[in-house]
Each structure stands twice: as structure tokens, then as C-alpha cells.
Design a protein around this nucleic acid. Structure first.
Length: 497
RNA sequence: GGUCGGGUGGCCGAGCGGCUAGGCAGAGGUCUGCAAAACCUCGUACGGCGGUUCGAAUCCGCUCCCGACCUCCA
């Protein structure tokens, strides 16, 4: 299936047709987490967004190589302390133990949110050689300088000669040039404040250290992504993604490093996701405006009145566009939870139905086909999941209408109905990555189904005898167990609330 | 302060020159033993002030708020 996909390229700030370098194949690199503490909910939004992008590219027929790194060295804090080392002190573990622990936690969370694993997940510490080679290339090309065993990228020289520095993040070169010397402060080794480390000489207490031509030290934060994307996707690849807040300096510096090392642009398309807010403000640990994924699941937080399931949260995320900020509020989550259930229940309803062999195409047939086509068009328009969901919900109304006889099944041909069944389900599960939690909860046993069948059958008998007291007793008892009975024309079905 | 992005009905959130998504909540109705679910119908919103246009939530100017980035950050 070929689709006319358009993506918003933050490099040129325009929505443009997507054309991969190699027909039918896509190389995509997404900046992964720094594994020194538990994964933040905002990270989850970004990775869910790229998960949908990955899923959609695959769905429309591309062979996608999705690379998402694990940063386990070089990413420093404000005060210059290495993030990984901070983790080791806090938990009395070695760096690799810290990395493993939080990598495991990250993977668990991605699985919880039903995100597919990337094709390749390289670690920064596993690519020290590649990083050293890249530093050497940058030095050979004259865009780096060595001071006391550390290597820095010369942004001023690069900006003047290559004219690309600041393009991605919208920085103005003049601003960089006129920046005050005061900013140098404790970074006195740098010639200019905007210069950044390619290789850092390790201080005696710094336990993550490797040999290099310049010193025993460790690589700079931005370098790993340049080195690993080059190794696994080539010098120039199709898509580079990440959170909006990485645009500067991280991504800007990645561009500089690639151009500086091989005179090549790393990626043709840059995709950036926007931030997740809570109650209108950015999530921040310092002022308490934050909630962790486990807290959100359990409801153990002053910011929510109850817990929300991972799929309800995923649905909530998909109801906004990935380039928009998303405001997480208790009220919005409740709305999303209900919407998610309505969608999944409609799919279950649909899958239990079948078309009529002797039907002839009428208005319904036409409209159903149009809605399906539109849902794909919305996805083709820069992965517009909220609009695609809107089309899906219009199909939900059709499905329920056909189910209760409100709409004429005779107007929908068997082939259209089959298309609806398979596409609707594929859209939800394969493209949007939503799974049915209510069904998954039974975990493959037919015991609950069997018991419910018995209970519903018994209730049917007492209702036939107009024994409403008994009927309501069964219904109320089930409600207490969070099981909802749904009395329809063709009998009673149930759903776990 | 610099750069960028926003302010849409009760809430969330699309749209970005005419055809005025969708979800949740609300109102009325159908169905039902009663409910629930489902279905049908209904709220006409675009921060403020000007301007361009036959026509603006959508373009331009001013203004007021909010958010992000500015070398910690998905």
C-alpha cells in the first residue's frame, strides 16, 4: 500500500512530501533516554509518538530500521556532574548496574505502553571507538581543538565557514558571536561559550573512563548520537526524531558534528515532539508539578482522583497531535478513558458481526469506505492521530447503528464490511498501538467467559418470569465487581469496567 | 531580554480564508420492567482592538495573557 505521506520537517519548518533516500526503506533515529533514573512521563509521550510513526511507516509498507539509543555516559548535569555517576552515588551501584537497572525499567514501561522495541538499541558506552574516530575526523577537518586533554568543538569557526550552525534550532549566529565572556565562568577551557565538549578528560574521581589519543576520559553527550546514527543508518539517513527540548543544543550540535566530520547532513527530515504539560504548566519535579507513570496508574497522587490504565493514557496522548503541547488534567484523562473504552467496545462488537452476502452497495457502503480512506489521509498528513481518531469514532457510530439495526446492513456489501472489520481493527491495534485491556485481563482463560455465560443465562430465566428483584440482584452484584451488563436486542453482553 | 509556539464552546482537542472535526460532560428523545449501554436530536465556540477581503477562528498590525528553548531535560 503506497500512501502520499507528508511530514513536518523542523529543519525547514514546513510540511513536505516524505521521500526516503532508498525506495521502500526508511532509516529513523530517535534520541533515547539517559538511564540514570526512572523514566519520566514526558519521555513516554515522545516515545509513544514515535512508536505510532514507526508503526504507521511499517503499515504503509516501508521497511523501517528504527534506531533508538540508550545514553549511559557523558550526559552531564548543571553542576558538571555526570548523570550516571549521580545515580551510582545515590544507589551505591556501579555505573553499568545503574544503566542496566534503568534500562530495564525503561523497557518495562515501553512495554506497558504497548510500544514496539526499536530495530537496534545501541548504548553509548558500547561505541567509544566509533566516537573517538568521529572526534578525530572533526579535528582533522579543523573544527575541534584540544585543551588539557579535552577536545572541544569550535562553533565559531564552524558557523562562519559552514553557515549551518543555528539553522535547525533557529539560533542567530550574531547572537552567538556577541555572547558575553561572562558566560565562560567555570568552563574556562572553552574558547567560546557555545563551544561544546567532544571528549572530556576524566577527573580522578570520575570512574567512567576510557583511553583515547587525548586523555583518559569520556565522550561528550552529543557525540554518541552522531556516531551511532552514522554507524547504523549511514552518514545521511531519513528521519531523526526527539523531543522539542533537544533541538538546542543537542540536535544542533549533532548536525554540527556530522557536517564537521564528513561534511554531510545527518538527517533529511527532523521530527520534534512537543512537551507534555500538567495543569497548564510544564512538569517539573522542583515545584511538585509532576506525576510518575506508576503514580498515574495507581492514582496515588494529589493531581488525580483515580488511577488510569496505560492504554487509556496512550489513547489520551493520541488525541492530540504530536507537535502540540498536551495538557494532562484529571478531567481530560477521565474523558479519554471513556473514549478509549467506547472505541474498543465498538471493535469487539464489530468483530462479532458479519456482512450479508446478498447486500448491495448503498449510502452506508459509500460512507464507510470514505471514512476509512479519510482515516488514512489524516495519518498521511503528518501523522494526525486526533483526526484519524475522529474518523474512527464516526465509524463507531456506524458500527453501533448496524448492530442495533438502526442502519441497514443490506446497504453494505460483504467486501466493504470485511474491509471495515479488518481495517478498523488494524488501525486501532497495529497503527495506533492500542490493545484491549478488558480482554487481555482474562489472560486467555475461558473460565470467566464461561461463568458469565451461566450467570447471564440464569438472569435471562428469572427475567422471563418477571422476577425483577432477582434480576436486579444479579446486576447489582456484578456491578459491585465492576462488571457491567449490557442488555441489547439480541441478548445480554458484559464488559469489565 | 533573545528565539519560537500558543490562546477555540463546561473540559480536552482538531481545523488555519467560505463547506464551521472528534472525545468527555450537559439537555431532550427512542429502546428498556426499571436502569445501564446503544442510537437519534440539540447547544454555534474561536483572548481583546483595529485592518485586508464579497467572506476570517483561519491573513496583516497592535495589545493582553500563557508556554517552550536559550548549553539539565523527551
Amino acid at each position: 500500500m503506497k500512501q502520499a505521506l507528508k511530514v513536518y520537517n523542523s529543519l525547514i519548518r514546513e510540511k513536505v512530501p516524505f521521500e526516503p533516500i532508498k525506495e521502500g526503506e526508511v532509516g529513523m533515529y530517535v534520541c533515547g533516554p539517559t538511564v540514570y533514573s526512572d523514566v519520566h512521563l514526558g519521555n513516554c509521550r515522545t516515545f509513544v509518538s514515535f512508536d505510532v510513526i514507526y508503526r504507521y511507516l511499517k503499515y504503509i509498507g516501508y521497511n523501517v530500521r528504527y534506531v533508538r539509543n540508550i545514553t549511559d555516559v557523558g550526559h552531564l548535569l548543571d553542576d558538571g556532574e555526570d548523570r550516571m555517576l549521580k545515580g551510582t552515588k545515590r544507589e551505591k551501584l556501579t555505573p553499568m548496574e545503574v544503566a542496566q537497572k534503568y534500562t530495564n525499567g525503561f523497557h518495562d514501561m515501553m512495554r506497558t505502553f504497548n510500544s514496539l522495541p526499536p530495530s537496534i538499541e545501541p548504548r553509548a558506552t558500547g561505541h567509544i571507538i566509533e566516537q573517538i574516530e568521529m572526534v578525530q575526523s572533526i579535528l582533522d577537518n579543523g573544527y575541534g581543538y584540544v585543551v588539557n586533554g579535552s577536545v572541544y568543538f569550535d562553533t565559531l569557526k564552524f558557523a562562519e565557514e559552514k553557515k549551518v550552525y543555528g539553522k535547525l534550532s533557529g539560533r542567530v549566529i550574531e547572537d552567538l558571536l556577541t555572547e558575553t565572556r561572562d558566560n565562560l565562568k567555570n568552563q574556562s577551557e572553552k574558547r567560546h561559550p557555545s563551544d561544546f565538549a567532544l571528549w572530556m578528560k576524566a577527573s580522578p574521581e570520575h570512574i567512567m573512563r576510557w583511553n583515547s589519543p587525548w586523555s583518559v576520559g569520556f565522550p561528550g553527550w552529543h557525540l554518541e548520537c552522531s556516531a551511532m546514527s552514522t554507524k547504523y543508518l549511514g552518514q545521511t539517513f531519513d528521519i531523526h526524531g526527539g523531543g522539542n527540548d533537544l533541538k538546542f543544543p543537542h540536535h544542533e550540535n549533532e548536525v554540527a558534528q556530522s557536517v564537521g566530520a564528513c561534511n554531510c547532513q545527518p538527517a533529511n527530515y527532523w521530527l520534534h515532539t512537543n512537551m507534555l504539560l500538567m495543569n497548564g504548566r510544564k512538569m517539573s519535579k522542583s515545584d511538585g508539578n509532576t506525576i510518575s507513570p506508576p503514580q498515574l496508574f495507581s492514582g496515588d497522587s494529589p493531581h488525580v482522583t483515580k488511577g488510569y490504565s496505560p492504554m487509556a493514557i496512550r489513547f489520551f496522548m493520541l488525541q492530540s497531535h504530536y507537535r502540540s503541547t498536551l495538557d494532562l488534567t484529571d478531567e481530560a484523562l477521565q474523558a479519554a478513558e471513556k473514549g478509549y473504552r467506547r472505541l474498543m467496545e465498538a471493535d469487539r462488537t464489530l468483530q462479532a458481526m458479519s456482512g450479508l452476502e446478498n447486500a448491495t452497495a448503498g449510502t452506508q457502503d459509500k460512507e464507510i469506505n470514505e471514512l476509512i480512506d479519510q482515516a488514512f489521509e489524516e495519518m498521511n498528513d503528518d501523522f494526525n492521530t486526533p483526526k484519524a481518531l475522529a474518523r474512527l469514532f464516526e465509524l463507531v457510530t456506524r458500527v453501533n447503528g448496524l448492530k442495533d439495526g438502526h442502519l441497514a446492513m443490506e446497504e453494505v456489501t460483504a467486501s466493504t464490511f470485511d474491509r471495515l472489520k479488518s481495517t478498523f481493527s488494524n488501525f486501532i491495534t497495529e497503527i495506533l498501538g492500542l490493545k484491549d485491556e478488558m480482554q487481555a485481563a482474562d489472560n486467555g482463560t475461558n473460565l470467566v467467559d464461561g461463568l458469565m455465560e451461566i450467570i447471564i443465562d440464569m438472569r435471562k430465566d428469572v427475567r422471563a418470569n418477571k422476577d425483577w428483584a432477582a434480576s436486579d440482584k444479579i446486576r447489582d452484584a456484578l456491578t459491585a465487581l465492576e462488571i457491567q451488563l449490557k442488555d441489547g436486542k439480541e441478548g445480554t453482553s458484559w464488559v469489565k469496567a
